[in-house]
């Protein structure tokens, strides 16, 4: 095949797809082409429907089953000792998710932004920057469970289970996402701004801190929020790093903690209705959290992205 070459490749000689001026385009031929086109359009529309079905089904069940469970008690009370007991709550898991994700954000976002600054402002296209860029893309593809195993081997084996260990694993997942999205935004900042600042005598660092980053801040924020949203829903990196607490543990650095996602995972495997209810309730809470972050990211980009374009 000659990609980018003249439209239709000579290999495909099916009369219904190649417009050949030598054959008289009689009515039957044209109607057949129209039919193929209609069938194709139908298939494409069908793929939208096919993708919408699971989304609607999942949303429906999470709202229906989770909605009946959510209450003030559910959101605040401790997790029951016996999985078969019926009733609330998920308080410690909510606190844990916020605490662990928050800690991970504090680590991953500043480092990710700095790394992106290196890639776009200093390294540009040199060899090291290219390697880091490729490897950061590769890191995006590292399975989350491997991140969990990694933190288990370097942190948990030495210092034990804690919310911080989970935060480290989440930070590893977030880092490449933040780097990627930040670099893409930095690339959009017009060079004129940098040149103007440098011409006024500002140093590189000052130019970046006072001109480049402020110009890109909305895009950076929205990228970071999307990374946070992804991290908040992760389960695998937390399974062997945070343990399983039943009571609220506000200490990030010490003691077992818990999170909504790991609670859903454990309760979903139980055959007791009480546990399954708690799983649905936790799922609704988690989805609300994640969707809020995603919507916030969209609003931030929409509202503040204007000056760049």
């Amino acid at each position: 095949m000659t990609p980018g070459g003249p439209g239709v490749s000579p290999g495909s000689t099916a009369p219904d797809t190649v417009f050949d001026p030598r054959t008289p385009d009689d009515g039957r031929h044209l109607s057949r082409r129209r039919l193929v086109n209609t069938a194709f359009t139908g298939l494409v529309f069908a793929s939208v429907v096919v993708a919408a079905i699971p989304l609607i089904a999942i949303m429906f069940y999470v709202l229906k089953k989770g909605g009946g469970v959510i209450s003030v008690d559910f959101l605040t009370k401790d997790i029951p000792i016996l999985t078969r007991s019926v009733g609330p709550g998920m308080g410690p898991a909510i606190v844990g998710t916020l605490l662990i994700t928050g800690t991970a954000t504090l680590m991953a976002v500043p480092l990710g932004i700095l790394a992106a600054v290196y890639l776009n402002e200093y390294g540009k296209k040199n060899r090291l920057a290219t390697v880091i860029r490729t490897m950061s893309d590769v890191m995006t593809g590292v399975p989350s469970i491997v991140m969990g195993l990694f933190i288990y081997t370097v942190w948990v084996l030495r210092f034990g289970l804690s919310g911080f260990a989970g935060a480290l694993a989440l930070a590893c997942l977030m880092l490449p996402i933040v780097i990627r999205s930040t670099e893409e935004i930095l690339r959009l900042v017009p060079d004129g701004l940098r040149e103007a600042s440098l011409a006024l005598g500002a140093s590189r660092a000052r130019t970046i801190m006072t001109v480049v980053l402020p110009a890109a801040i909305s895009g950076i924020t929205s990228g970071a929020l999307l990374a946070v949203a992804r991290a908040a829903g992760e389960t695998a990196p937390l399974l062997f790093t945070i343990g399983a607490a039943r009571k609220v543990n506000q200490h990030v650095f010490s003691g077992a903690n818990t999170a909504l996602s790991t609670q859903i995972f454990r309760n979903a495997q139980q055959s007791f209705a009480g546990a399954q209810d708690r799983a649905w309730g936790a799922a609704l809470t988690l989805i609300v959290l994640v969707v809020l972050l995603t919507v916030m990211a969209r609003v931030v980009t929409k509202r503040f992205a204007v000056p760049l374009r």
């Binding site: 069940y61 908040a232 695998a236 859903i264 995972f265 988690l286």
Partner: peptide, 10 residues
Amino acid sequence: AIPSVVYGLW
């Protein structure tokens, strides 16, 4: 945006 574990639960 739907977390993996919610897909699993469903």
